[in-house]
């Protein structure tokens, strides 16, 4: 019998200590809750309950797992520019779980998007693009949004690297796919940044302002929008409005890199430069 029994190599569906119980809904209507299950070939097995046969994965219609702590760790590593470590961590977490990729409730796609970000940070764009494509092909409802988000993450990295032509090309594609508020807000921010780089302060201002106007709930996009708004107002000679935008940024989003930049670029004491 071709069994793929790997009890020693990361077979826990939920990784880490103290992981919560996992719940599976089966084709026959049964709901099975078990402590971290063990993957045995194409089956899930509750070893703690003394099972030896388990349930075939193909019978699972939905599952409910807590996110593995590795996700948060990888996220933190990416934020601190430690992409190789983040990639290693997320790669190790994802690989054994690929079998659950298309089962509703699986976090695999979310993990794949994180892996894509790590790959893009490492400059391995074709592989990151492959993940975008994989997510787009997924049957799960949540996958397209993850694909779009990953696409924007890649564009952000390209922008930061100064590959503006590539950014423009990709934005043209991404704009058609941006359907949720988060993506639309990011789309506007990227467009605004490009316009500002082109010296089109007024058009850039409009693009930045679209974020607070249409997507006020997108708090993560707001500091960048306010910083861009401040800069554009300043370029347009709207000094009072620039000051108001800067103050709002500093007041509502203290400690963000954008607030720090705004304070640096437009110090309130510098009469000459202050908006």
């Amino acid at each position: 019998m071709n069994r793929h029994f790997l009890p020693l190599v990361c077979l826990l569906l939920a990784t880490g200590q103290g992981a919560s119980a996992q719940t599976f809904w089966m084709q026959d209507g049964r709901k099975i809750t078990m402590p971290p299950a063990v993957l045995d070939d194409q089956r899930i097995v509750n070893r703690l309950a003394g099972e030896s046969v388990g349930q075939p994965i193909s019978n699972i219609v939905r599952l409910e797992w807590p996110d593995p702590p590795a996700f948060a760790e990888a996220e933190a590593l990416l934020k601190s520019n430690r992409a190789p470590e983040a990639f290693a961590l997320i790669d190790a977490t994802l690989k054994p779980q690929q079998l659950f990729r298309e089962i509703p409730g699986s976090w695999w796609n979310a993990g794949a998007a994180l892996r894509g970000r790590a790959l893009a940070s490492l400059g391995r764009l074709p592989e990151a693009d492959a993940i975008v494509a994989l997510l787009r092909r997924s049957k799960l409802e949540t996958a397209p949004a993850l694909a779009t988000r990953l696409q924007f993450d890649i564009i952000d990295l390209l922008f930061a690297g100064g590959h503006l032509d590539e950014v423009r090309t990709r934005l043209a594609v991404a704009s058609a796919e941006a359907r949720d508020d988060a993506s639309r807000a990011r789309l506007n921010l990227l467009n605004a940044d490009l316009l500002r780089l082109d010296g089109k302060a007024e058009e850039a201002l409009f693009a930045y302002l679209r974020v607070p106007v249409y997507f006020p709930g997108e708090k993560s996009a707001m500091p960048a929008a306010l910083l861009g708004t401040t800069r554009c107002y300043h370029s347009l000679g709207e000094i009072t409005r620039a000051r108001l935008a800067r103050d709002e940024l500093v007041r509502l989003y203290p400690g963000t890199p954008e607030a720090d930049l705004a304070q640096k670029e437009f110090p309130p004491t510098d009469q000459k430069n202050s908006p």
Partner: peptide
């Protein structure tokens, strides 16, 4: 007014 311009233009 700039926000209003954004809305009306759109």
């Amino acid at each position: 007014p700039w926000e209003a311009v954004v809305v009306y233009r759109d």
